[in-house]
Amino acid sequence: MPFEGVPGLVETREAFGETALVVDPARLVEACTLLRDEHGFEMLVDIAATDYLGWGSPGVSGYIGTAQGRNLNRPMTQGLQALPAPKPKRFSLNYHLLAIQPGAPRVRVQVWLDDGEPVPSVLSVWPGADWFEREAWDLMGIPIGGHPYPERLIMDEDWEGHPLRKDYPLGGEPVRFSGEE
């Protein structure tokens, strides 16, 4: 196992030919520094946040295949044939790393977070993380600890809520000049 010495490593998962390292958020910066310096992952390609609120339960995307059986009140067959594996916490934050080497090795560093739980900034490891972290805060509401400029990036500065969360409604934006103000 090449990634055994990574600090705070909780679990290594292999799926679809990709390697994911689940890391304890408290030791994320240590883990990232080691991956950059020892494993050659010089480039942070992407930070992707995912909200798993309502994962595998009815109500968000309209399932019928629930643990309670078929829900006749939701006749649209968006149902799952099997319930997806439960997730440890509500949010996952995925750091996609790339090594500029033959074979283009890639790895995904994954941390799991509850609502409001901050994740340390990896700006000191890869300066390019700046906007990606601000985007994770802006659109998904993941607080970035130690970021020197923790402002919204995409939405307006006075925006309320985090639009990519599962509990943020579609059409949640008030329509201006609609006569209902």
Binding site: A48, T50, D51, Y52, W55, G56, S61, Y63, Q78, G79, L80, Q81, A82, P84
Partner: peptide
């Protein structure tokens, strides 16, 4: 994907 007919993310 959660195994359904729409992308989860």
């Amino acid at each position: 994907s959660d195994g359904g007919a729409r992308p989860w993310r």
